[in-house]
C-alpha cells in the first residue's frame, strides 16, 4: 500500500500570499475582475483579460467536477515516488477556473471524468494545500 503525498508549505509572493492565506483558513478562492467580470485562477495582480488592477478575491464553493485525470504509477522524485499510484486531475470549479490537483479518499480506479468532487485542505504549517475528494 502506498503512502499519501506529503505536502510542504508553498513558496508565496505578493501576488499569491492572499490565496495561500485563505487556504490556511480552509477557503478556496478565485479572483474576479471588478472591471470586466472575468473570473481567473491562478491569482495575479491584474486581470489577464483586460489588464485592470481591480481584481477582487471571491471564496469559491469548493465544488467541482473532474475534467480529466490520470493515475500516476511512476514518479522518480522522492516525495512522490512512495505515493504512487496517486490520482492527478484537472478539476473544473463551479466558478469556472480549472485547477490541477489530487483526488483522494477513493480507489484510484473509481475516479471518472465528470465525477463531482469537493475540496479539502491539508495543513502544511503556515499555509494549507487544497485537494479534492468525491462529493
Amino acid at each position: 500500500m502506498s503512502s499519501e503525498i506529503e505536502y510542504k508549505d508553498p513558496v508565496v509572493d505578493w501576488e499569491t500570499r492572499a490565496y495561500w492565506e485563505a487556504c490556511a483558513r480552509h477557503e478556496l478562492t478565485v479572483q474576479r475582475c471588478g472591471a470586466c467580470g472575468k473570473v481567473q485562477h491562478r491569482p495575479r495582480a491584474i486581470c489577464a483579460s483586460c489588464l485592470s488592477g481591480e481584481v477582487e478575491t471571491l471564496v469559491a464553493s469548493g465544488r467541482g467536477t473532474v475534467h480529466t485525470f490520470t493515475i500516476v504509477r511512476q514518479n522518480q522524485v522522492p516525495p512522490f515516488a512512495s505515493a504512487c499510484p496517486y490520482v492527478l486531475a484537472y478539476v473544473d470549479l463551479e466558478e469556472g477556473p480549472r485547477l490541477l490537483t489530487n483526488i483522494v479518499d477513493c480507489e484510484p480506479d473509481s475516479v471518472a471524468v465528470g465525477m463531482p468532487v469537493q475540496v479539502e485542505f491539508v495543513d502544511t504549517g503556515e499555509f494549507a494545500v487544497p485537494r479534492f475528494r468525491p462529493a
Partner: peptide, 25 residues
C-alpha cells in the same frame, strides 16, 4: 520551490502524467 510552480508542484505532476490527462480526455 517558487511562487509560480506552487500551484502545480505539490501534486506530483510529471510530463508523462500531463500528457496522459490529454489522452484520458
Amino acid at each position: 520551490r517558487d511562487p509560480h510552480t506552487a500551484f502545480t508542484s505539490p501534486y506530483g505532476q510529471t510530463v508523462v502524467s500531463s500528457y496522459a490527462m490529454s489522452a484520458r480526455r
